[in-house]
Nucleic acid binder design. Structure first.
Length: 260
DNA sequence: TTTAATGT
């Protein structure tokens, strides 16, 4: 009888140790639980960028809402092959984000503005399930984009990011506007039409690497590869601090290079 | 092709 208790205690101890070990790196630990997508739900704040305004957490991504410009400073999410290869279909159910305390932009702001409701987190990155897809249509995830930009070179960059997610298994993606040389303001809420957009990509698997893009928001534009840059450059342009949790030396090294 | 949207 006593021996059985000892074995039971031993088993519990081992299980406990395993749980603690798996929890050490949330983003990677989640990736190991292939069949439970709820753990991919956005409960990792480890690599969240510095916030300037209201952070709103969605199920599969989070964003920092900038009331002055009526759009996010950044959207941030983990992109895996499961998200890219999902089967959820677009429903184009654009809607205001009622969780934004200062109120998000609304549908009439964009109506007949001549600008697309451009997704910051693309709908095609959230094919995992209906809820994931639906949450990308919140107006807090939108930025007014020239149709030629949104459906052209920016779209091609978004496709490339999805290819990287499949190649690398999982990557962290951060996307947002650069509020410099802004083009216009649209609607009653005066939604800023930004002068440029950035993307920051971080592959956590070893060897770790980062890359970034800053693309001018213009009709005339070169192939997106011409706009590849470093995370440091994006920090300079936006004032956002990315991956502050990394050890300083690693952060400096990764952010100074565009090693993709 | 699908993806990303607008207008009817």
């Amino acid at each position: 009888m006593k021996k059985q208790y000892i074995y039971l205690l031993l088993l519990l101890f081992v299980l406990g140790a395993c749980t603690i070990l798996l929890k050490q790196d949330p983003a990677i630990a989640q990736n190991n639980t292939n069949n439970n997508y709820d753990t991919l739900a956005f409960n990792f704040t480890t690599y969240q960028p510095s916030s300037q305004n209201q952070v709103a957490n969605k199920t599969y991504y989070s964003l920092d809402y900038n009331e002055e410009h009526e759009q996010a400073n950044w959207v941030y999410y983990l992109l895996t092959s499961e998200f890219v290869n999902g089967t959820a279909k677009r429903k184009d159910n654009f809607k205001a984000d009622k969780t934004i305390t200062t109120e998000s932009a609304n549908l009439s702001d964009y109506k007949k503005s001549g600008y697309d409701r451009g997704h910051l987190c693309p709908a095609a990155d959230m094919k995992l399930n209906e809820q994931a897809m639906s949450e990308t249509f919140l107006l807090s995830n939108m930025s007014p984009q020239l149709p030629s930009f949104n459906r052209g070179e920016w779209k091609r960059l978004e496709s490339q990011v999805r290819k990287w997610a499949i190649e690398e298994d999982s990557i962290i993606v951060i996307t947002g506007p650069v509020f410099k040389n802004n083009i216009a303001q649209i609607g009653k809420n005066k939604v800023t039409v930004p002068g440029a957009y950035y993307k920051v990509i971080y592959d956590l698997t070893k060897p770790q690497k980062m890359t970034a893009f800053i693309m001018p928001h213009t009709k005339e534009i070169k192939t997106f590869t011409n706009y590849q840059t470093t995370v440091n450059k994006v920090e300079q342009e936006t004032g956002i601090d990315f991956f502050a949790i990394l050890p300083d030396e690693l952060e400096e090294n990764l952010e100074a290079n565009s090693s993709w």
